[in-house]
Design a binder for these strands. Structure first.
Length: 479
DNA sequence: TCTGGGGTCCTAGGACCC
DNA sequence: TCTGGGGTCCTAGGACCC
């Protein structure tokens, strides 16, 4: 594909990029060490302490406080490999507590939405904000709010000399970001870093530098900044959003080591090394937006439930119990977003082999006779799949189920013959969902799930669900 | 003996993200 | 002894068609 300067990579050639691809003012708000920070909010004894937070099954380290990072521990490393360092340095170890993190995330995002309506919640601890419309404050946005700053904190609008106006608006944006940062810290206890720039990829870089730099004090504005090139030069190529370890190796081989060199590399070279995604990324580094802000949450395209077992499992009955539980969980989420699946995949993995690398994976994908979100039907199909791929004598350490090819549930085709029975099952599902929502997930279960779960994951060092469970509220002692 | 070419659709797997 | 879980997008290659 030949690219012209004013065409966006990956799109039809006749589409030139829209003017708004060039002059956006975006921000990325990124919570610092989010899980570790959540643990600290309700347990101030942890302030200043090194903390690591574990994945499900207490297996891997998935988050660290700054203090813990200093000991050279990295995200993704298995706990058992770091036991010595943890013990020696009195590092606090927490099992993950997603009830708590999810609720804290909601609080942060609610506050952000109060500041600006054009917001994309990108992950549990990050959101992109779009300030591009600030000169037209008051214009209705797609979400029904207004584009621009909230009234209480409307910054001065630039007037007079256009250059001065831009820099004045830009300055006020930085100040506004500081206000946001202070408010989040004060109201939720979560520290955040904010990066401002023309494209999402550049805001990622800005927020990363904001986090590191003492001078930036948590906010870095790279919009029209004379320091942009120097900033890009500081960022190693593997730290650029969208460059993983595989691409980084290839780029380094070609002498591209930092974000500045990546930005200035030729289109052909990048297209050849990293494909069209790489090209988009490089355009973003040049200030041309290829990843628009998406402020409208869309239904998932696939829904997955998988888990590593607390111990190895070789009994097919136990495997079936686990898979039934996974299907039930994923089907609940499927119905929640009002989708039905046309495709179901069951997979099972052995433990790691002795060379610590290869693990055997068996999987089977089934095209369902009709799109469905009924747990009973999905379980029936999944059980057939288990029977087909299960190998007696094999011991499994992880399994899962995935629904794909999702369609809106009202589009599902039901044969006339099945219509009455299916309507009845749908009503049953609705009731089960309502009750489980009220009484707690898993209160009503299919019998095949069983009542004893030897495959359940470990979670031995979990903190209380301070904000989402009445029995586990934080206690304050008054003396 | 000689063994098209272009198109579409589907799927598995790779790479990446948090 | 002990190696997470939930996603998205892209690509290559096979099957199939004319």
């Amino acid at each position: 594909m030949k690219l012209k300067a004013d065409r966006l990579p990956g799109g039809p050639e006749e589409i030139s990029y829209p003017p708004e691809a060039l002059n956006q003012s975006l921000a990325l708000v990124d919570c610092n060490n989010f899980y570790a920070s959540c643990e600290r909010v309700f347990n101030p004894k942890l302030n200043g302490q090194p903390i690591v937070v574990l994945s499900s099954n207490d297996a891997c380290i998935i988050a660290l406080s700054n203090e813990a990072k200093q000991f050279g521990i990295k995200v993704g490393e298995p706990l058992f490999e770091k036991r010595d360092i943890i013990k020696k340095n009195n590092i606090v170890v927490c099992s993950s507590n997603f009830n708590l993190y999810g609720d804290m995330s909601r609080r942060v995002m609610d506050l952000l939405s109060g500041f600006i309506s054009d917001i994309e919640i990108y992950s549990i601890d990050e959101a992109f904000l779009n300030f591009s419309g600030h000169k037209k404050s008051g214009r209705p946005s797609r979400r029904g709010g207004t584009v621009g700053y909230s009234n209480a904190m409307n910054p001065p609008q630039g007037v007079g000399d256009p250059h001065e106006a831009v820099s004045s608006v830009n300055h006020s944006l930085t100040e506004y970001a500081r206000t946001i940062r202070q408010t989040i810290q004060k109201w939720t206890g979560i520290p955040v870093s904010i990066g401002l720039a023309r494209t999402k990829t550049l805001t990622k870089i800005a927020s990363k530098l904001a986090k590191k730099s003492k001078k930036a004090n948590g906010v870095l504005n790279l919009i029209d900044s004379p320091h942009l090139d120097r900033a890009l030069e500081k960022v190693h190529v593997v730290d650029v959003w969208g460059v993983g370890i595989k691409s980084a190796r290839k780029l380094i081989e070609k002498g591209i080591r930092n974000a500045l060199q990546l930005r200035d590399a030729s289109d052909n070279r990048i297209r050849h090394t990293m494909g069209v995604s790489g090209l988009r990324l490089v355009y973003e580094l040049r200030g041309i937006s290829c990843h628009a802000l998406d402020n409208c949450p869309r239904p998932k395209k696939g829904i997955l439930c998988s888990q590593s077992f607390g111990r190895k499992i070789s009994d097919i009955a136990e495997l079936k119990q686990a898979i039934t539980a996974f299907v039930t969980n994923a089907a609940e989420r499927l119905r929640k977003q009002k989708s039905a699946a046309r495709h179901l995949t069951v997979f099972m993995l052995t433990g790691f082999s002795e060379d610590k690398q290869a693990r055997k994976k068996q999987s089977l994908s089934i095209k369902l006779p009709a799109a469905t979100n009924l747990s009973s039907e999905l379980i029936r199909q999944a059980m057939k799949a288990v029977e087909r791929i299960y190998q007696s004598g094999q011991s499994y350490k992880r399994a899962g189920v995935r629904f794909d090819d999702l369609v809106p549930s009202e589009q599902t085709q039901i044969s006339l013959f099945d219509q009455a029975a299916s309507a009845k099952t749908s009503r049953l599902m609705e009731t089960v969902d309502i009750l489980n929502d009220k009484l707690g997930s898993g209160s009503l279960r299919y019998a095949t799930q069983g009542t004893i779960h030897p495959w359940k994951a470990k979670s031995e060092m979990v903190s209380p669900r301070y904000t989402t469970c009445w029995d586990e509220l934080a206690e304050v002692l008054a003396k």
